[in-house]
């Protein structure tokens, strides 16, 4: 939350006035609570956040280092862990660019044009957020699985989708589907079409207009969307779990690798791998906060807040 969005209803700082007297009524009781109530509520809220957010985060790192740095590093260097890292990267590298292209295309047609059914389209784009990740995985099993509609055809052509990398990528695409679009749509709607029309009247082509006029206007929003999309792509568990088949070293992503280690009671190793993802989450939060603070005026998310 940037400083100019701070609506704290507190009195302005009381500087010593040249007349030497302090305020007769110390606080503006009309629009705020007594100090003890304020501090009680602050303490309650922070205690709640600490208990439910900070403590779990802290425990990830503590548990990861419980058996020392040696165990920690070897858990990460292990071939299965490296394979999981590789697969997770591949899934994100497929999902994020695909959803990026889709997000820009969707935002372009929704923000720059009027057409019937637009509200419906926006709602449909948000749909994957309200679908349980397990169901998201299931839908692909129903299509590409051995008993699915398209399964036999793919099997005949020796293409593995389910229990293989394509299925994992598909599931990841599904669950990260709305992130970039829903950041760009309100942003581009707010920016209108004036800039583009100006560029077009100056003789720029459509692609040129997008590249040198629209893109610079939305670049921070785009980055913001990519950031959130990427975080989810790295961390998706439920959907990927359904389609993965859990083959160590082959179809395990990082979150699935954590599950396997955990179920084998290799707790320190599970938490070591988890700490990698937790670190990524922290970097994501830091970048996100930085973008919200520095480019608040160029992000739709910051406006909504």
């Amino acid at each position: 939350m940037s400083e100019n969005l701070d609506h704290s209803l507190q009195d302005p700082p009381q500087l010593p006035s040249e007349f030497g007297t302090g305020p007769l009524v110390r606080k503006n009781s009309a629009i705020t609570e007594p100090a003890w109530v304020r501090w009680l509520l602050i303490a309650l809220a922070l205690a709640f956040l600490s208990l439910f957010l900070l403590l779990p985060l802290l425990s990830v790192f503590t548990e990861a280092l419980r058996d020392g740095w040696g165990t920690y590093l070897s858990a990460l260097r292990e071939p299965d862990a490296m394979a999981a890292i590789r697969l997770t990267l591949i899934a994100a590298l497929i999902a994020v660019p695909l959803n990026l292209v889709f997000g820009v295309a969707a935002a372009w047609c929704i923000a720059k044009f009027e057409f019937r059914g637009k509200q419906l389209l926006i709602s449909l784009i948000d749909l994957p957020f309200s679908v349980s990740p397990v169901v998201a995985g299931l839908v692909y099993v129903l299509i590409f699985g051995a008993q699915g509609w398209a399964g036999p055809w793919f099997a005949a052509h020796d293409i593995k989708v389910i229990f293989a990398v394509p299925g994992i990528a598909l599931a990841t695409v599904f669950v990260t589907f709305p992130f970039i679009a829903r950041e760009l749509i309100p942003l581009m709607q707010e920016q209108g079409t004036d800039d583009e029309q100006a560029a077009l009247t100056l003789g720029a082509g459509g692609f040129r207009t997008f590249w040198s006029v629209t893109l610079p206007n939305i670049k921070w929003g785009l980055l913001y969307g990519v950031l959130l999309c990427n975080a989810r792509a790295f961390g998706e568990f439920g959907a990927v779990s359904v389609v993965s088949g859990h083959i160590r070293g082959q179809t395990n992503t990082l979150p699935l690798h954590i599950e396997i280690l955990y179920n084998e009671y290799a707790f320190a190793a599970a938490f070591a791998v988890a700490s990698l993802l937790a670190g990524l989450a922290l970097v994501t939060l830091a970048l996100k906060t930085f973008l919200e603070w520095r480019y608040a005026d160029q992000l739709a998310a910051a406006h909504r807040r």
């Binding site: 009195d11 007297t21 305020p23 007769l24 110390r26 503006n28 009781s29 009309a30 629009i31």
Partner: peptide
């Protein structure tokens, strides 16, 4: 109105001193 606390001075409504009254 009492919405802005004052640093010094006095406000009276009729015979009664309102300076220290809440809104």
């Amino acid at each position: 109105a009492g919405l802005e606390p004052i640093d010094a001075g006095q406000i009276r409504f009729g015979a009664s001193d309102a300076t220290h009254l809440s809104v």
